[in-house]
């Protein structure tokens, strides 16, 4: 718990973070930036879980455990996505979204 900061302020912050992530995912034209936007979404839920656990249900640590697992899985996800992006870069020398449209409709 942080003195002087209520749960409303933190949840507002994480919600803003989540929607920045969604906005970034939709508008960015670079695959790496899209990946970073996804990380923002995942991290906003991590903070959500820890804060809700700490402020509302401090007796059981379920939320904190969930947060730890999200961090681990997010790392695996990023590693895999980077590997695929590197492979794509070797093939077409670009990581722009507009170059990945061989298949459409």
């Amino acid at each position: 718990m942080i003195l002087g900061v209520s749960i409303y302020e933190i949840l507002t912050l994480t919600s803003i973070l989540f929607f920045i992530g969604v906005y970034g995912f939709i508008t960015r034209t670079n695959l790496i930036s899209m990946l970073i936007s996804v990380e923002l979404i995942l991290n906003s839920s991590v903070v959500n879980f820890v804060v809700i656990n700490k402020y509302l249900f401090p007796e059981v640590l379920q939320g904190v455990f969930f947060a730890v697992f999200i961090i681990a899985v997010a790392a695996a996800e990023t590693a895999l996505a980077i590997a695929i992006i590197i492979n794509l870069y070797r093939l077409i020398s670009s990581v722009e979204v507009k170059d990945t449209e061989v298949m459409k409709y």
Binding site: F25, M34, V38, A81, I84, N87, L88, L91, V102, M103
Partner: peptide, 12 residues
């Protein structure tokens, strides 16, 4: 190329 493209679309 198609396989890599499909992969990045799926993972993202």
């Amino acid at each position: 190329r198609k396989s890599a493209e499909a992969g990045i679309k799926y993972i993202l």
